[in-house]
Design a protein around this nucleic acid. Structure first.
Length: 413
RNA sequence: GUGGGUAUAGCUCAGUUUGGUCAGAGCGCCAGGUUGUGGCCCUGGAGGCCGUGGGUUCAAGUCCCAUUACCCACCCCA
């Protein structure tokens, strides 16, 4: 162990794992491109106020999980704990929404939350964030959810379940909220300590408490669906039928609630049974009030975030790590071969070929082993015989064929 | 912030119960042998003050206390 180690909750992505990350990121970029989304890269830090106003003052994220500090000018700034707020800010700041058209943005990068690390959870983590602004249509909801589905299936993770719910809007949610409070208050003693606290701060969260006694109380609690106003109801029905027309199967879960304040109407989550307690792979929903909350026009929005660490975890359980080796490994077999090999290698690299080598000369067996480990397709051998003849020996490790090339003709490789 | 578990070689882990040749194995790495020029097999080698700091004892990976880190779970989230 070095004297200074990595920060708790901040992990190195080692080369063996990085190839998997690349696949995930490339798949993400390809899918969002097909769905007509463009990339926006907001800064990794924002003014603290942005997150307080968007995520919500009383949420756990803002209350105790943000990396907040003062810069040298006394400004309170925060490492982004999620991407939506920054995207909304950029959208408004640059007037990307002018003309009334929908704006479809994505963002791929690291987020920071000061949480206790555990399986599938770190303090620095990566998300793919996808957002549609200024499009109130339920088809935008369905499009977004289908994008998420396509992304996950193309990664080879088809067994994940998509869970759907509607949280209502500013018009109909307050009535439900009050009704839920009334229901639970009468049996407050039977709830766990956490839920008694939630009753004050965020009563909807009691619905997904894991304590059995709380689940029992939530069982006969009023259901959100029956409180939805006609508009919300119609919107939700339209989302469901649009998804059905695409053949997408999903589950409905009355108890699916989100931890961020800004969500309205459609919410959804993707879960896996193979991740321990952190079973949520992706989550998102509609947030029609967020833009106005941040001082902009009243633009609707819908989007989601996928936790890439959790995807990687799932992928590494199933797929073996892929490693793509170089085109050639050059085996330098004697000291005299060093200089000509050095020259040849760089001529090949400049030409566009991937070439690996160890500069230190070594025995035949040792060099061949290195070639094998490197994953190279072919080995170029340069030893005393080759120097004498001016012809290097090229061995194809897969086909087990051999051929020769003049050492001074890299163009023939 | 709370609870449980773990910490011995580059990696995965034995050894801790019942203190005393316990500094170990496998893999990996290095050298050599065998092989049809590597993969299998054989031989040899390098590499660890047993997380850190105290304590008990004639004697501590082994028992006690503290501390740090990691893992898992709660909370919350992706």
């Amino acid at each position: 162990m070095p004297a200074v180690t990595a920060i708790r909750g901040f992990k190195d992505i080692l080369p063996a794992e990085a190839s998997l990350w690349r696949i995930v990121e490339e798949t993400a970029r390809d899918v969002v491109r097909r769905f007509d989304f463009v990339e926006l890269r907001p800064p990794i830090m924002e003014k603290t106020e942005l997150f307080q106003r968007s995520i919500g003052q009383s949420t756990d994220i803002v209350e105790k999980e943000m990396y907040t500090m003062e810069d040298r000018g006394g400004e309170k700034i925060t490492l982004r704990p999620e991407a939506t707020a920054g995207l909304v800010r950029a959208l408004l700041e640059h007037n990307l929404h002018e003309g009334g058209r929908a704006v479809k943005l994505f963002c791929l990068g690291q987020m920071f939350r000061y949480e206790r690390p555990q399986k599938g959870r770190q303090r620095q983590f990566h998300q793919l964030d996808v957002e549609v602004f200024n499009d109130p249509s339920p088809l935008a909801d369905a499009e977004t959810i289908f994008l998420l589905y396509v992304f996950l299936s193309e990664l080879g993770l088809p067994s994940l379940s998509i869970v759907l719910n509607s949280l209502g809007c500013r018009e109909c949610r307050p009535a439900y909220r009050q009704s839920l409070i009334d229901h639970l208050s009468s049996r407050k003693e039977r709830l766990c300590g956490d839920c008694q606290r939630r009753l004050e701060q965020n009563p909807l969260r009691t619905l997904d408490c894991k304590v059995p006694s709380c689940q029992a109380e939530a069982q006969d609690a009023p259901v959100l669906a029956s409180f939805l106003c006609p508009d919300c109801r119609a919107h939700f029905e339209a989302v469901k039928s649009a998804l059905a027309s695409l053949g997408l199967s999903y589950e409905l879960d009355e108890r699916l609630v989100r931890g961020l304040d800004y969500y309205t109407r459609t919410t959804f989550e993707v879960r896996s049974g193979d991740l321990g307690a952190q079973n949520a792979v992706a989550g998102g929903g509609r947030y029609d009030g967020l833009c106005r909350e941040l001082g902009g026009p009243d633009l609707p929005g819908i989007g989601f975030a996928v936790g890439l660490e959790r995807l990687i975890l799932l992928l590494s359980q199933t797929a073996p790590p892929v490693s793509d080796g170089p085109d050639y490994y050059v085996a330098i077999l004697c000291p005299e071969a060093q200089a000509p090999a050095f020259k040849l290698i760089h001529q090949l690299r400049k030409k566009g070929l991937a070439v690996a080598a160890d500069w230190t000369p070594g025995g035949l067996k040792s060099r061949l082993r290195r070639a094998d480990k490197s994953g190279a397709a072919k080995v170029v051998m340069i030893g005393p015989d080759e120097l004498a003849s001016g012809q290097v020996l090229i061995r194809d490790l897969v086909a087990k064929e051999q051929e020769t090339r003049p050492i001074d003709r890299p163009d023939l490789f």
